[in-house]
Amino acid sequence: MPRKPGQYDRIMAMADRLGWTRTGDGDLAFEWDVPGTDTSVAWERDPDTHVEYFAVVGPDRDRVAAEIADAIDLLGVDDFESHVARSTSVNWMIPALYQVATAAPLAYDPRVAALMDRYMDSSDLLIRRVAILAASFTGWPEFVEPIRRFLSDPDVDVRVAAEAALRDLSDELTR
């Protein structure tokens, strides 16, 4: 995911320079095919979290993702701690947690898990709910047990968030 949102001109220039063929665009996504491959790229904006991210699908996924990383400053695991720490209010913390979870690697990373665990244990109910939901974005089965403990949280909204996160993780694990 881009470190800074709204880099329309830079992302479009990258797609043109790399020779991607535009296959669609809408309010929330731009899509391209990578010529000579069965790989496609989407630059999307999640309608619920407002997080912008790249989705790369196909056999050349790793190569194309590396090309994107060379052209666009992406949020990486080494940046997650400072990215969230810069959030000075709940209004900034919420998107930061969603951004970290969206940018998390495909494979479990204990540094990311520790960061998410810290915010899942927040005394702020809203931060706790968001961190629980964000953790499910990773698709990591390692989050099932940590999230399960919130099914008995005193706050009903935290319990609902835990139920939703566990459903999302279950759906992800059965794909």
Rank of each mutant, 00 (worst) to 15 (best):
Met93Ser: 02
Glu52His: 01
Leu97Val: 09
Asp46Cys: 00
Asp27Pro: 11
Phe54Cys: 00
Ser89His: 06
Gln99Val: 09
Arg86His: 05
Val34Met: 05
Thr21Ala: 15
Gly76Glu: 15
Val57Trp: 01
Val90Tyr: 08
Asp33Ile: 13
Thr88Leu: 10
Thr23Ile: 14
Ile94Arg: 04
Glu44Lys: 15
Phe30Leu: 13
Ser40Tyr: 11
Val64Gly: 02
Asp25Arg: 14
Asp46Ala: 01
Tyr98Gln: 11
Pro47Met: 00
Ile72Met: 11
Trp32Asn: 04
Phe80Trp: 04
Pro95Glu: 03
Glu44Ser: 13
Pro47Asp: 01
Arg17Asp: 10
Leu28Asp: 10
Val51Thr: 11
Asp62Asn: 09
Ser40Gln: 12
Pro105Asp: 09
Asp27Asn: 13
Thr39Met: 09
Glu67Phe: 02
Ala15Met: 11
Glu52Val: 00
Leu28Thr: 10
Ala65Trp: 10
Gln99Thr: 13
Thr102Arg: 13
Ala71Glu: 12
Leu18Glu: 15
Ala15Leu: 10
Leu106Cys: 15
Leu18Ser: 14
Trp92His: 14
Pro105Arg: 08
Thr88Gln: 09
Arg22His: 14
Glu52Trp: 00
Val64Trp: 04
Glu81Val: 05
Arg63Val: 08
Phe30Thr: 08
Ala13Phe: 10
Val41Ile: 05
Asp48Leu: 14
Phe30Gln: 12
Ala104Cys: 09
Val56Pro: 00
Ser89Phe: 03
Val56Trp: 00
Asp46Ile: 01
Tyr98Phe: 09
Leu106Pro: 15
Asp60Ala: 07
Ser82Met: 10
Glu44Met: 13
Val84Trp: 00
Asp73Asn: 12
Val64Lys: 05
Phe30Asp: 13
Glu52Gly: 00
Asp70His: 12
Asp79Gly: 03
Ala71Gln: 13
Val64Cys: 03
Gly58Ala: 03
Ala71Tyr: 11
Gly26Val: 07
Glu31Pro: 12
Phe80Gly: 02
Ala55Asn: 11
Ala103Gln: 10
His50Lys: 14
Trp32Pro: 05
Gly36Trp: 01
Asp48Ser: 13
Trp20Tyr: 09
Val34Pro: 03
